[in-house]
């Protein structure tokens, strides 16, 4: 029984990681319809930012991590902004072309990481205060996982506030619902696009910093998460924050439990089949933007 209960926090932890990775996609893919395959490499950039804070600037790991989070957000956000301004803005409405395009960008970023930091994984020391864990009702909760969960919750709250309460966030939602109508009411859609991309990419950086706590940091770090993160957005529904949260948790728990009952390799297949099955019932994901448009 304990073993089964133990899967719950593991599942939530996996879900939190997926959520962090998918939150950014919720902006770039969900709001703008751009399949940014370089999102995984942005996560990798974020992870290497955490590495650089202690390896190059020799900061104390106890607070270097807290500095790395905003630094990674800014750095990958700017990278995303450059990508949007450079190429992607010419490809709106052509998701499959952006997919191939950004995959190429991702390959280049990966190779740059290999050339700068070397192909082997690097070591990012975790702060001392994240070592160990606490036991709640016989369930082991690792501090690192709790930290990731807290980070994910913080991001979700910030995004929800931004989208629902702030002026630029509302403009973003207006553009998502109807770009032309938004434009004629005076919303600067181009600037909204750029902001959306900045935020989405910046969130990838935060996810990358979190990933250094639970796994090896290497040039292909983002690659391992990107497919799952896209699945979260597909299951959750495009541009739906609550869908992304629910889907991330559901996929995390499903992953943890199927790994527990079978093994890690079969679990992936089970999750995939479950997603195909789910799409039979709800092909547009859990939540959708209602529209009368015939697509």
């Amino acid at each position: 029984m304990d073993a089964i209960l133990n899967q719950v926090p593991i599942g939530i932890a996996i879900g939190a990681v997926l959520l962090l990775a998918a939150l950014g996609l919720n902006f770039t893919f969900g709001q703008m319809g751009v399949i940014n395959m370089a999102h995984g490499e942005f996560m990798m950039v974020g992870a290497y930012t955490a590495f650089v804070t202690h390896a190059w600037f020799d900061l104390n790991p106890d607070y270097a991590l807290l500095l790395a989070v905003p630094a990674a957000f800014a750095l990958t956000g700017l990278l995303g902004l450059a990508l949007e301004a450079g190429v992607i803005r010419h490809f709106y409405g052509r998701p499959l072309d952006t997919l191939l395009l950004t995959f190429g960008v991702g390959l280049v970023l990966q190779q740059i990481a290999r050339d700068v930091f070397g192909a082997p994984n690097v070591d990012v020391p975790a702060p001392a205060w994240l070592a160990g864990g606490v036991d709640v009702l016989g369930i082991r909760l690792h501090h690192a996982r709790l930290f990731i969960l807290a980070l994910a919750v913080l991001c979700v709250v910030a995004i929800a506030y931004y989208l629902n309460r702030s002026r630029p966030g509302r403009q973003m939602r207006a553009v998502l619902h109807n770009r032309d109508l938004a434009a004629i009411t005076g919303i600067p859609t181009r600037r909204v696009d750029a902001t959306t991309f900045f935020l989405g990419s910046g969130l990838a950086g935060i996810a990358g910093v979190a990933l250094t706590l639970i796994g090896p940091t290497g040039p292909t770090l983002g690659h391992n998460y990107i497919v799952d993160a896209f699945l979260v957005v597909v299951v959750g529904g495009l541009g739906q924050l609550r869908g992304t949260i629910l889907a991330a948790l559901a996929l995390g728990l499903l992953n943890a439990f199927s790994e527990f009952w079978t093994d890690a390799s079969l679990a992936k297949v089970i999750v995939f089949v479950a997603i195909i099955g789910f799409l039979q019932a709800r092909p547009q994901g859990m939540f959708t933007v209602r529209s009368r448009a015939l697509t």
């Binding site: 190429v87 010419h90 490809f91 072309d97 191939l100 395009l101 995959f103 190429g104 960008v105 991702g106 390959l107 280049v108 990966q110 190779q111």
Partner: peptide, 13 residues
């Protein structure tokens, strides 16, 4: 790998 990455971009653009 650099060339491959650039090929993606150049061909699509």
């Amino acid at each position: 790998i650099y060339l491959q990455g650039l090929l993606f971009v150049v061909v699509i653009v």
